[in-house]
């Protein structure tokens, strides 16, 4: 695997996982959304923009989208999709490390299966057309 492919996969996985965790943390500070009317949602969205965690999370998710888009110009979707499922593992580990969440036996089994699956997919050629990677 090219180092460029490796770097972009790492950016996609980490920015998506950390972005979602940070955004979720920030949004919890905004408080419950009591109504789902468009006006109430817009108000919540505007209010959340004043929260630095929300801004950081949004920036990370924008980085994720840019890196994911570029990566798909030279790597198979089926490869990117499956390898980036490592994000689930990262979220579970981050939750345990920073939010004190428990990892149940079922989740450990999930972590094991995903890791095994990703190592299998990672051993295949990233690009069907052979170009770029």
């Amino acid at each position: 695997m090219q180092s460029k492919t490796r770097l972009f996969l790492a950016v996609v996985i980490v920015s998506n996982a950390v972005g979602n965790v940070v955004l979720g943390y920030g949004m919890r500070g905004i408080g419950d959304i009591s109504s789902y009317s468009p006006a109430a949602l817009a108000l919540s969205a505007v209010r959340s923009l004043g929260n630095p965690w929300v801004l950081l999370g949004t920036a990370l998710l924008a980085l994720f989208f840019a890196a994911h888009t570029l990566l798909l110009s030279w790597v198979d979707l089926s490869y990117v999709l499956l390898v980036t499922s490592l994000g689930y593992v990262l979220v579970a580990v981050l939750g345990a490390a920073f939010l004190g969440e428990q990892i149940s036996m079922a989740r450990w089994a999930g972590i094991l299966l995903i890791s095994a699956g990703v190592s299998l997919v990672g051993a295949t050629a990233p690009s069907s057309s052979g170009g770029g990677a």
Partner: peptide
């Protein structure tokens, strides 16, 4: 649709990932 080459190894990996996602999420 995209005519990507998905061989036995990638299918096997997909099966493990899908089972893992069911358990973890």
């Amino acid at each position: 649709v995209l005519s990507e080459r998905v061989g036995p190894r990638r299918w096997a990996g997909a099966g493990l990932v899908i089972a893992g996602v069911c358990l973890i999420a």
